[in-house]
Design a binder for these strands. Structure first.
Lengths: 291, 291
DNA sequence: TCAAAAGTGTTGGACCTACACCCATGT
DNA sequence: ACATGGGTGTAGGTCCAACACTTTTGA
């Protein structure tokens, strides 16, 4: 038999075929309410969720996703699913991880490849109709509840329980996971157990994974600039970094660090009750050490 | 209809289902021939390949892989495929990327999730029978042929042509790819085009991707120790780092850098025609900044 | 006037790079 | 004896954390 003959007679059902979806974890950073006319508004990390219109998990919130169509790449499928729910287009997306647990979907075996997206929310307007087929930003609050650490012969195990609270104006979605970080012969292995989740499927795992990746990438890439508007003050940029890294930074040091990643403009942000701040734009030619 | 009813009546063929495979890129570092009794043997990065026994790409070399079975996780599938070809068990594996291009397999649509593995080849004995259903280590030689760089309004584009030569005692497998690294608003986007490949499918893309990831991870993890035997001299460890990083390192500086990752033993490597060198073991409790 | 943020300068320490130098071995 | 790798010390520079300080605005 020739290869040509083989391909002509190939029966695609010879091997088991699962369903395949893509899911996206799209982050933004948005202002919370202002208390004081002089103070800068507080910012919060938010994630895009959609309300499921159909079974399973009907009326539950979930990450936006879709089944991958026959002639469509993963990237095309993700973009299509985001455009269907919001007017997002050409946003920054990055493949994160593929979830293959045989039991992760109650319908049948479904494999999902997750993508992380970052947007500046000022550019995006969600089609929020108030119906069940709804999309909304939810602020993310993480609380590490309990930590346990044990050494063993291979290295050690750290267990951490995390409460993940997702909130929008009307709703609150509670989740609790146990994150186990194990060091086996120097290799860090992380796995997550869902203890309680009001999100659909294993989406809270995907969310935790994406947050972790985001935090890592902030330190050695310019990924955070995807969350910024075109023109911004350095203090606002610093706020974004502080949220992503989960710690406060010293102003003088921060400015030295990002000095080459930004370009000064002649414009100022005025009428703020304090000294006007210069507006900066991202330096698109900033070369990381990668090149 | 309740969720229970929905699930009972769910038709898994409602959405398109592709085939799903896993493929693994397993690296090792092994000695080349010795020329001089005093000199250390040269080391080379190698990758595990198997010869395809069936169509498509019959008799071509490919990365070891398998279709994922109905009740099996990705990790189980990868381990099963490696054990079938070699006696590898419990090796270090890490999920890399999922390849979803609709045309990547000539049979039907096949999605593949690739895993990277690292082993110390002294521990592994490949079942190499000389038949068509064979497995073998191939040394990897990379040659960057041509580079082109252009600036545009978003950032810049760098194009690089790379020859990937894979060799074992009897055979030589030639490949040529074009790697395009694009900087779009500060986000690095990499895509690879196959210009010529004697490997099956898009496996040369997976290989290039894995090499890239390996090089990156060497710098901020202890991943390289997976390639070492239990006891080793610091010079041999340095050789491994030099191969992975693709550059020579200064001895004194290298030793200071890895000082805390290793533990001195009382044993020596003798009879080498020069001063005996102390043997070290990996410090399994070395803490990276991650924890 | 003054709270709040904008913005800059300095200092000490940690770490990295490059180089120089001596030590021990077995053929 | 000597080539070869084993092993250590030092000087100079860079980068970063921590802190102190000055400037500017608008209610």
């Amino acid at each position: 038999m020739t290869e040509e003959e083989f391909l002509k007679n190939y029966d695609s059902n010879r091997f088991f075929k699962p369903s395949v979806t893509v899911d996206s974890i799209v982050f933004t950073i948005r202002d919370e309410e202002i208390e004081n006319y002089r103070k800068l508004p507080e910012k919060k990390l938010q994630v895009l969720l959609v309300k499921r219109a159909e079974y399973p998990y009907k009326d539950k919130w979930s990450l936006p996703g879709t089944f991958v169509r026959k002639e469509e790449s993963f990237e095309e499928a993700v973009q299509r699913s985001l455009k269907a729910k919001t007017n997002m287009e050409y946003i920054y997306l990055e493949q994160l991880y593929s979830w293959g647990d045989p039991k992760r979907d109650p319908r049948t075996r479904v494999i999902s490849t997750s993508y992380m997206g970052l947007v500046n929310s000022e550019k995006i307007h969600i089609k929020s109709g108030g119906s069940t087929n709804d999309a909304s930003w939810f602020t993310i609050t993480l609380n590490s509840v309990k930590e346990k650490m044990n050494e063993n012969k291979h290295g050690y195990i750290k267990e951490e329980e995390i409460d993940i609270i997702l909130e929008n104006k009307n709703e609150i979605i509670k989740n609790k996971v146990k994150v186990v970080k194990e060091l086996v012969n120097g290799n860090q292995i992380i796995y997550t157990q869902i203890l309680y989740s009001e999100l659909a499927f294993d989406h809270v795992k995907m969310l935790i994974y994406a947050i972790e990746r985001l935090k890592n990438k902030v330190e050695y890439t310019t990924i955070a600039f995807n969350l910024m508007p075109e023109k911004f003050t350095l203090t606002k940029l610093q706020q974004v970094y502080e949220i992503l890294l989960g710690k406060t930074l010293l102003k003088a040091n921060f400015r030295r660090k990002i000095a080459n990643m930004v370009i000064e403009t002649e414009e100022y942000d005025e009428n703020a009750g304090h000294r006007p701040s210069k507006l900066y734009i991202f330096n698109k030619n900033w070369q990381s050490h990668i090149f």
